[in-house]
Design a binder for these strands. Structure first.
Lengths: 146, 146
DNA sequence: CTACAACTTAAAGCTGACTTTAACGCAAGC
DNA sequence: GCTTGCGTTAAAGTCAGCTTTAAGTTGTAG
């Protein structure tokens, strides 16, 4: 009666064994006990992996997950760790959404294109970008308000 | 009097020469004329690159850009090409934003965590995910409304 | 003649989060 | 004792979109 094998664990949390080995290698999982060379786990590995999975799901990179586990003083409560990382990630996501909305605006404008040839669009875009470069280089002359 | 060199072109559109070579290699730019082995360009390359740059800016991959140029019958107007690709990309982005909003919800809920140890969170998450697996496997019994 | 800048190519490197492959070990069942 | 089916490792491969490197070519200036 010796604990779970790597593929039993992997099956439970819907990961591949290779992912678990990878997590161990990069140090976000502790080195597992071995039984004649093979990893054996108890149930606490599930809790560790559940945290990792949840963190991945909400967009944390493995580096951020490392910070979650090891980037705080030992007695820092889990709640505070989550709060700190979540705050940062929410800010990131806010920026990301704004960025996407800008892009959506550009896309909608692009849908109004009336060009026949792509080179036509290209010429307009190129000349506009030239204007902008020029405007940046001598900002005293305003280009006419569009 | 022989046209622009690759770094002159690159300078104009704010790309590195290596990027232009790369675009040529993967076939989204036509093979350039050579003058004693070196690429020489006329102004139309700027239009082509302006289209590529704009398309990259609004989130198209190089594969999508290839479709923009070559994925339509020759007489398909640029406007229709843009419209088609933009429609798809807007749909993608809509899904993406929804996804991000889901994540933001999860993050905000995570901020309410009151656990001391990460393993506590993990245990809750793990047991919840077990419930869900069970519920998926025999959906006749509802888990109590949370 | 030589140095130098700018070009050329193919191939390798970068990022992150893994997966795949190759070569091997170990225990159980026949 | 042999096969089957797990497990192990290190190293290489994957994706995109380039950049970097190494080694070689070309044209111009001193």
């Amino acid at each position: 009666m010796a604990g779970l094998t790597i593929s039993q664990v992997a099956g439970q949390v819907d990961l591949r064994p290779s992912a678990i080995r990878y997590y161990e290698r990069i140090g976000i999982l502790p080195a597992a006990q071995r039984s004649s060379g093979q990893r054996r786990y108890d149930e606490t590995i599930m809790y560790r992996l559940a945290v990792i999975q949840r963190a991945r799901l909400i967009g944390f990179s493995l580096e951020e997950i490392r910070r979650l586990f090891f980037g705080f003083r030992t007695n820092t409560p889990a709640s505070k760790r989550w709060a700190e990382l979540s705050r940062q990630k929410l800010a990131e996501l806010k920026t990301l959404v704004e960025h996407i909305q800008t892009i959506q605006g550009l896309l909608r404008r692009q849908q109004n294109c009336r060009c026949t040839k792509l080179d036509q669009c290209g010429k307009v875009m190129f000349l506009k970008s030239c204007e902008q470069h020029a405007a940046k280089d001598n900002p005293q002359k305003k280009t006419r308000k569009s």
